[in-house]
Amino acid sequence: MRTLFIILVFLLSFSSIAMPENIILVRHAEKQKGVDPSLTQQGIQRAKIIAQMMLPYEPTKLYSTDYNRTKATLAPLADLIDTHISLYNPGRLDEFAHMLKKQTGTIIVAGHSNTTPVLVKHLTGRDVEIAEDEFDKVFVVTFEDEMAKLKIHSSNK
Rank of each mutant, 00 (worst) to 15 (best):
P117Q: 07
K137S: 12
G125D: 01
T142C: 08
K157T: 10
I81R: 05
S113E: 03
L25M: 05
L8P: 06
K48Q: 14
H112Q: 09
V35Y: 02
Y88S: 10
Y67S: 12
N22A: 04
H112W: 10
V109S: 03
L77M: 06
V128P: 09
V35P: 08
L62G: 07
D66H: 09
K101P: 04
N114K: 10
R69F: 06
V118I: 15
T83M: 09
M54G: 04
L87E: 14
F14V: 11
A97H: 01
T106A: 02
K149M: 11
F10N: 06
K157E: 13
L80R: 12
I44A: 12
T106S: 09
F139W: 08
I108W: 11
F139V: 07
V9F: 11
T40N: 00
S154K: 08
A131P: 00
L62K: 10
V120D: 07
G125C: 05
A78C: 06
S86H: 13
Q41L: 14
S13C: 14
S13V: 11
D145M: 10
D94E: 14
K48D: 09
I81M: 04
S86F: 04
D36W: 00
P90Q: 04
R46T: 12
E21N: 15
I107H: 00
S154E: 01
L150E: 00
R126W: 04
I108E: 05
N89I: 03
E21P: 09
A72G: 05
A72H: 11
D36R: 00
I44C: 02
L25T: 00
E146F: 14
K121I: 05
D127N: 14
K71P: 03
S38W: 02
D36K: 00
K149T: 13
R27W: 08
G125P: 02
L100K: 06
D82N: 15
G111Y: 02
F139Y: 12
K121T: 08
A47Q: 02
I44M: 09
A78V: 00
I6D: 05
E129H: 12
I107S: 01
L12C: 15
A148E: 01
P76G: 02
H84G: 15
A72W: 06
P37L: 03
L93A: 04
M54D: 01
H153L: 14
V9I: 13
I7D: 07
N68H: 09
V35A: 12
M99H: 13
T124K: 05
K48P: 05
Q45Y: 10
